[in-house]
Simulated assay, not measured.
Amino acid sequence: MPGAIDARLAELGETLPDAPAPAANYVPWVRSGPLLFVSGQISMDAGGIVKGLLGADMSVEQGAAAAKLCALSLLAQARAACEGDLDRVRRVVKLTAFVNSAPGFSDQPKVVNGCSDFLVAVFGEAGRHARSAVGAALPFGAAVEIEAIFEIA
């Protein structure tokens, strides 16, 4: 029987991808006490890495959609860490987000709302979190990369 979070994802019409493998010498997540630290997840869809430079060849709306893809990968990693049971997530504590930004682009918070809004839609009040949103050059030309801290049972 699916849990409440799986049911909520289905209501939203979303299916989590498999937890992506690390692209370098790191682990995808680490648990320390009740905290789960999930490594940065880049914007990926079924076609591969979603690439783009916000403020140049990608709009804020396209960037927000890329940030939502990061949220799906973050949840896939959390699901793996929680042995398949996302109902163990008690709270989204913090997001640190990086947006591949052209010089002068300053709407990183609007882009990262694509992830934040989705996590609130999934977890309700427990999805509200602290957050940083910064412009940066990203690996592989990815549009967005986001890491997360969750509190889990």
Rank of each mutant, 00 (worst) to 15 (best):
M1D: 12
G135M: 01
E14G: 01
Y26S: 08
A23C: 08
F98K: 08
A130L: 13
V122T: 08
W29E: 02
A10S: 12
K94E: 13
A24E: 09
E125W: 10
S101T: 11
G124V: 14
I146T: 04
G3A: 09
A130G: 12
P103H: 02
M58N: 00
S106R: 11
A80E: 15
R79H: 00
V93Q: 05
F140E: 06
R91Q: 15
V60G: 00
F98N: 05
L74M: 11
L54Y: 03
G141K: 05
I49C: 15
I49T: 15
G13D: 07
F123C: 06
P20N: 10
R91S: 13
A4K: 14
G84W: 03
C70Q: 03
G13K: 08
L86H: 05
L12R: 06
S116L: 13
R90N: 14
Y26L: 07
L86V: 08
I49K: 08
M58S: 02
N25S: 10
V89Q: 03
E147Q: 10
G127V: 15
N25L: 11
A23R: 12
A66P: 01
V30A: 10
V30L: 13
A21E: 15
R31F: 09
V89L: 15
I149N: 06
F150M: 10
A148R: 03
T96D: 13
V112N: 13
P22S: 07
A4E: 12
E125L: 15
A10M: 04
E151Y: 07
R31W: 10
I146M: 04
A80W: 03
L12Q: 08
R128N: 09
F150Y: 13
L119M: 15
R31C: 06
S32E: 13
L54W: 00
A80H: 07
F37A: 05
V60K: 00
T96K: 12
G141F: 06
P34Y: 02
V27T: 12
P103R: 05
A148T: 14
N113P: 01
L54S: 06
T15E: 14
L36C: 12
Q77A: 15
S59N: 01
I152P: 06
A78F: 03
A46S: 15
L12G: 09
R88Y: 05
R31E: 08
K94N: 14
A56Y: 06
L95K: 01
R31V: 07
L54R: 01
D57P: 01
E147G: 14
K51M: 05
V38Q: 02
A19D: 08
A97N: 07
A56C: 00
A81P: 01
A102R: 04
A66F: 01
A46N: 11
A65V: 01
V122H: 02
A4V: 09
I152E: 05
E83T: 03
G127H: 13
A7Y: 00
A78V: 04
P2C: 00
A7I: 10
L86A: 04
A4L: 11
G63F: 00
V120Q: 15
A143F: 03
M1W: 08
L69R: 07
S106V: 11
Q41I: 04
A23H: 11
V144M: 10
P20W: 07
